[in-house]
Design a protein around this nucleic acid. Sequence first.
DNA 1: GTGTCTGCAAACCATTTGCATCGGT
DNA 2: ACCGATGCAAATGGTTTGCAGACAC
Lengths: 129, 129
Amino acid sequence: MSLGTTIRVTRQRQVLLDELCKLYTHPTADELYQIARKRLPRISLGTVYRNLELMAEHGMIQKLEVGGTQKRFDGNAAPHYHVRCLKCGRLDDLNLPLDLDLDRQAGELTDFTILRHSLEFTGICPACC
Amino acid sequence: MSLGTTIRVTRQRQVLLDELCKLYTHPTADELYQIARKRLPRISLGTVYRNLELMAEHGMIQKLEVGGTQKRFDGNAAPHYHVRCLKCGRLDDLNLPLDLDLDRQAGELTDFTILRHSLEFTGICPACC
DNA sequence: GTGTCTGCAAACCATTTGCATCGGT
DNA sequence: ACCGATGCAAATGGTTTGCAGACAC
């Protein structure tokens, strides 16, 4: 975590944020690395991970804590829901309104202080059948 | 996947299922390995992973696709929701009724065929503050 | 000039897998 | 006896980290 220090505007940072915001595919770190390489051939995977982590900490992007082996990233920082295809792993946004009442209901049933929730649907995408 | 073959009743399988069903902590594979070792000192971590995977495929237990670096397992095979502590990672059951209407609503907003959903709350547990 | 950021390579850690042997049926 | 299951150790794959040089400010 580095919330106390200055964030410098580097070329790598600019390109990563720019490319991530252009995509609606919720790419993995490696997918974004492959894309960024076209503009910055010498960028390293380590830099991609460090910057995605940093930008997520600062609320500029979202690190999605969803199913699957790899983490995915979302240029849209506003909380929203997703659908994942069971067969191909494709992850789409879902236009279902955020249900903030869920947090209140959950809070009444537990001793935890509820901060937020994440909701992910699983299904089969049109391309997979 | 091995849904077409016979499942044998081995001592390792019995112990793992028995111990998992006694716990309400949603252990990781390694935590369950440490517990099982007390009864079967020669059991291997590979066997733990293989059996948890197999039992999940057969619907005897649940593999939880939730946040965090390690997968967690639940001896309760019936779908239900969870709360995770942001600080210590503790994962508790949440007594909120399963909302099956969510799948219907989601289905109307996407081309995916919705099969199920997972809902995880994030908060701070009483022990952490 | 100072302190952050980068590329590179090595390290890490959860999980998976190949293989010879064991054991349930 | 057959074939699935096990223990062991090595391999895998995503992610993190240490370090010396580069760059933003």
